[in-house]
Design a protein around this nucleic acid. Structure first.
Lengths: 192, 192
DNA sequence: TTTCAACGATAACAAATGTTATCAGTTTCA
DNA sequence: TGAAACTGATAACATTTGTTATCGTTGAAA
């Protein structure tokens, strides 16, 4: 098997059973793409045409609020998917932009590939369901955290679940992810 | 067809094609349940064993934060589903409680019914996928609103998308839904 | 190598939001 | 029907968070 497809095969196999034949056919539709640091692979206002699976690197999903300021919605790590799923599936303009925080290697899945997978793969619909459920759970947790936790608590959770993030992402983007100002995050960190 | 099943049939048919035979079999597993105002049909800490489809009435999904205060996560309206999907599917204790805000009639779907539907119905997995996707989109929008909107803006959105809510829900629960104190909401409304 | 932009800390001040307490009108229910 | 709980407004005050500006350091690019 193409070594570049090892990670995604592992992830998909964790959701459904997929035979070698099916995988060979399915994975042949994957495209490898190298993204340079700071490059934008989805721009707000355009339809999201792809789902990205991150082999190596780090993506940032953000949008621009009413005051023209960027808000970081999500940091997408290795071995996870990144996309604007709503824009992608409904083929409507996206509210989000996606930018590489580092030189990043992604596998690109087109809408045809995803929709085709629902029909072609024995467990295609199930894969779609389980992925949607998992990301639904993730969002559920995120909402609950926004309801119940203080910015400092969310900061501490982030550092404990993803300690290396500070070597990979500037602090003011973490502030925007936590939905607080960079000044305030600096205050929290330096405990004044 | 059982008149009580008309609403849910309409909703499910909007997601997938389902034959009359399949529907007859599937809907025979539905149970009708009447809930009295203030009754709790899911308690935090217990495993959520059901998905509720609301025929008539209004449910409130809430949890208790670290300070022991209730936070209203969601108001579930007629013709929508209410559950703790994560607790339900993973069979783990729930973080949420579900309470009736009015005398409410729900249709009860068990885990066996849902899982059985994935296999039994021609488009069962697809139904599960589309529902998960839709609720995923809903959560996505909710997160974005929490990032970008002021409490007043969220309040105005709520009133325009659901004008009658104030006749059905006390104001302090709306405040907890907006994640602000009841005092603050009162101030916003009375524009001081 | 030099220069400029990016980054993070800090201070001073402003705005948003929470907390506590009180009070009056309603609803509930024993 | 009457007491108690519930509800929402309001005031006073405290806390959190944002805004703007400055400054020194660092990193990137010409």
């Amino acid at each position: 098997m193409n070594a570049q497809f090892k990670n995604i095969h592992k992830v998909i196999s964790s959701y459904i059973e997929i035979s070698d034949e099916e995988w060979a056919h399915y994975s042949s539709m994957l495209q490898v793409k190298e993204i340079k640091k700071k490059d934008i692979i989805l721009s707000e206002g355009s339809v999201c045409k792809e789902v990205f699976f991150i082999n190596k690197g780090l993506l940032r999903i953000f949008f621009v609020d009413n005051n023209g300021e960027e808000k970081t919605f999500h940091f997408a790590l290795e071995k996870t998917f990144a996309t604007d799923y709503k824009s992608f599936l409904k083929e409507i303009p996206s509210n989000y932009s996606i930018q590489a925080m580092e030189d990043t290697q992604v596998l690109v899945m087109s809408l045809d590939m995803i929709l085709g997978g629902y029909k072609m793969l024995t467990n295609g619909e199930k894969l779609g369901r389980l992925l949607a459920e998992d990301y639904f759970f993730m969002f559920n947790d995120k909402i609950q955290a926004m309801y119940t936790q203080t910015p400092l608590e969310r900061y501490n959770d982030l550092t404990s679940s993803f300690p290396k993030i500070f070597q990979r992402v500037p602090q003011h983007l973490i502030a925007s992810y936590l939905n607080i100002s960079s000044v305030h995050l600096s205050r929290l960190i330096n405990a004044s």
